[in-house]
Design a protein around this nucleic acid. Structure first.
Lengths: 132, 132
DNA sequence: CTGGATCCTCCCGGATACTG
DNA sequence: CAGTATCCGGGAGGATCCAG
């Protein structure tokens, strides 16, 4: 057991059985956490859901997502792009035109997220039933 | 369009089409966020994965989960219990004995989380391939 | 053994103003 | 139109000590 670079980017105590060939920890909790980190933050989910299958421009997204600032939209889009969820196409024109869309991998994430939402709803309905 | 109590517990601008019969916002991003909130925080995921199908005592969990403090274990377990993911059985003995396990709903969450982890791994392998 | 109470630190994200 | 730069407050969570 030694401290190692975990797949989720943090230091994680890991033994041989929990490591891959690069000595990265691959414990379920860490791979899941690493996936969750990609959609972490206040605005990633709204961005992903608003984009859906569409292609949208920066200000179009900003209008659709109530309350988001330019700065948060910029940084969130950049992080989503870096991890491969969002595709960014910049047309070098004046005035600037930049289009955003989900990558195939981003699209393949959405059914999993919907499962998660469905699971949460089911759990809540059970709680409501218990509480009357 | 008016501000309403969202299903995820926050105030959310919502129109009629996005509301249920109780005027709760049911936008996908909000139901998903509500589900994610249940497993939010640094320790919920380690707890869920460590528990798995087992029944474990407080200090047993504390030993298994490297780095967690009593306080974080207590509060995380309590939140997981309140939302119906964890079942808590307290035997009124001296010294105290408390056992924790996943509820059926908690167990039904794990395959979804594994899907999420698998999705993240796939995405990372694609990135590695691109970067060489 | 199973927690509770307090204090403290770090960083996410909001507000505002500015730019190619 | 599509961003950047800077400042700042609040809350999550760690450390430490205490309790039934």
């Amino acid at each position: 057991m030694k401290d190692n670079h975990c797949i989720n980017g943090e230091i994680c105590p890991v033994n041989q059985a929990e490591s891959d060939q690069d000595n990265h920890c691959v414990k379920p909790e860490c791979t899941i956490k690493q996936a969750l980190k990609m959609i972490d933050g206040k605005w990633k989910l709204p961005i992903i859901c608003t984009l859906g299958g569409q292609t949208m421009r920066f200000n179009e997204l900003k209008r659709e997502i109530a309350g988001i600032t330019s700065m948060m939209l910029t940084s969130s889009l950049k992080e989503l792009e870096e991890c491969g969820i969002v595709y960014r196409e910049s047309y070098h024109e004046v005035p600037p035109k930049v289009e955003y869309s989900l990558t195939d991998e981003g699209l393949s994430l959405t059914p999993i997220l919907f499962d998660l939402g469905h699971w949460g709803n089911k759990l809540n309905m059970m709680k409501d039933k218990v509480n009357g």
